[in-house]
Design a protein around this nucleic acid. Sequence first.
DNA 1: TAGCGAATGTTGTTGCCCATAGCAATCGGC
DNA 2: GCCGATTGCTATGGGCAACAACATTCGCTA
Lengths: 141, 141
Amino acid sequence: MDDPLIRFPGYSLRRAANVAGAELAGRLAQLDLRQSEASALLLIAENPEITASALGRKLDIQRANMVPLLKRLDDAGLIERHAIDGKSQGLMLTAQGDTMRGKALDVIEQFEVELIARVPAEHRSHLLPALNALWQGDGTD
Amino acid sequence: MDDPLIRFPGYSLRRAANVAGAELAGRLAQLDLRQSEASALLLIAENPEITASALGRKLDIQRANMVPLLKRLDDAGLIERHAIDGKSQGLMLTAQGDTMRGKALDVIEQFEVELIARVPAEHRSHLLPALNALWQGDGTD
DNA sequence: TAGCGAATGTTGTTGCCCATAGCAATCGGC
DNA sequence: GCCGATTGCTATGGGCAACAACATTCGCTA
């Protein structure tokens, strides 16, 4: 074996995320959605009136980077923003946004099924908890 | 639970890769190396005289994107390129490059130990094979 | 041996994602 | 009423990857 990299989980993690990300991005592109936008739609639907800042914290996207993201969703007529008070704005899906959210969810769930099918059965149930432990303060650490 | 995302392995994969990638990038930055450069060093050491194109195929980096990567390694005095024939060039580590490779390997292995320590023991052994199955044509597919 | 398709290294451009610094306005607690 | 914290935003840059295009060279074949 002349590949010293495949024994590193960190390297495999990066490669796997790249492959999976590219695949999902391609499918979401047919809805003219990016991954970050799709996840924003799902999260807004689950948390109506959420603040832009709060949404950014949940997605781990900085406030500054939320601006173009929300602008694109707004321009596409998928979300509405209205002032909660003088400095915060509440986010809501429009009817069109909720329709789009449904389509995105279909795409994502189909993708996830195919993704998980690629991992051998004996490892399958371990993948999600292992991954979650890597980025959430989840832990039994 | 108001987070519909954490049940998706694909989403967790992306988040985990981001966290791990940022962490590793920060450590490698102290050697003035990027992740792609560090992996190139390891691979060149294991495959002397490898071609730029072949290296790109192994790392899944397009030929075009190898150019600035190799240029930076070359400018830093870490690799040497010499013509194999009129169109291909063989890559080799310089002595300095091999020293750097050693340091990078130390950093990476230390990082990997800490990374894998974050996942609960019962899932630990499943992570690498599961991830590898996701991006390698490894498969029983 | 001449020719032609494939491979190689390269340039240039684009896009996504993330990070930082800074700013004006507003909120909230003392 | 004041001041620190928060919010939304602008501007800028870096890392990484994708694509198209190009000149040169290789290798097979007719």
